[in-house]
């Protein structure tokens, strides 16, 4: 009897405190997102997007996706902010004001996308539902076979590196192409750097 009630409670979702934290984190995220959309100062924007990443990392932790949270914190809040700051240095500090008319189309896209997302959640299985397809089918199999197949305890790593290692290979390709892309467009940094340094030295002499 108590067992059944226990499972039911688990299926019904996390308890009230977690829900409250959920709501407050999501609210903060929404506020940050709106602030990002309205701000014109690029520096503040970069900082706020870092905040946004950290908030989402927190939220991932709440959702028990620690690996994703960790990645989000390192990539979203860490390196992205640093790189965007670097990019910002090459341009102006304040974004130009949009024409109000130009905002209509993106607004429409956002509204429609949001509406479809809401629509989709109606039939989405409950959070943490062990019987949902996502949790019962392949996920179960991964959990069961992992140790026998690969022999390491972290299932996330074995899925990423072995079961779906090719995806990771592709992602490394994406990272690599990103590097190539920036180098292609901006040139090699050290060349222009040494050129400007030389100029400077020449100026001092």
């Amino acid at each position: 009897m108590s067992d059944v009630a226990n499972t039911a409670a688990q299926v019904a979702g996390p308890d009230l405190s977690v829900i409250l934290i959920d709501i407050s984190v999501l609210t903060m995220m929404a506020i940050t997102a709106i602030a990002i959309a309205r701000l014109r100062s690029l520096f503040a924007l970069v900082m706020l997007s870092g905040v946004y990443s950290l908030l989402s990392a927190t939220w991932f932790v709440i959702a028990d996706a620690v690996d994703v949270a960790f990645t989000e914190a390192a990539v979203g809040a860490g390196i992205s902010s640093a790189l965007i700051l670097g990019a910002m240095l090459l341009t102006v500090r304040v974004a130009k004001e949009d024409k109000p008319l130009k905002r209509i189309a993106p607004m429409l896209v956002v509204v429609i996308t949001g509406a479809i997302l809401f629509y989709a959640t109606i039939d989405l299985p409950g959070f943490g539902d062990p019987n949902s397809p996502a949790n019962s089918y392949l996920a179960q199999e991964f959990l069961q076979r992992n140790y026998g197949d690969i022999g390491i305890p972290n299932v996330v790593t074995s899925v990423l590196a072995s079961y779906r290692g090719f995806d990771t290979f592709g992602e490394v390709g994406v990272v690599f192409i990103a590097g190539v892309a920036v180098a292609l467009l901006l040139g090699f940094g050290e060349r222009s750097l040494s050129a400007s340094l030389k100029k400077k030295k020449g100026g001092e002499k």
């Binding site: 989709a120 039939d123 989405l124 299985p125 949902s132 397809p133 996502a134 949790n135 019962s136 089918y137 392949l138 996920a139």
Partner: peptide, 9 residues
């Protein structure tokens, strides 16, 4: 969404 509904990729 498809993954959520079918559990496979």
């Amino acid at each position: 969404f498809l993954y959520a509904a079918t559990g496979t990729l």
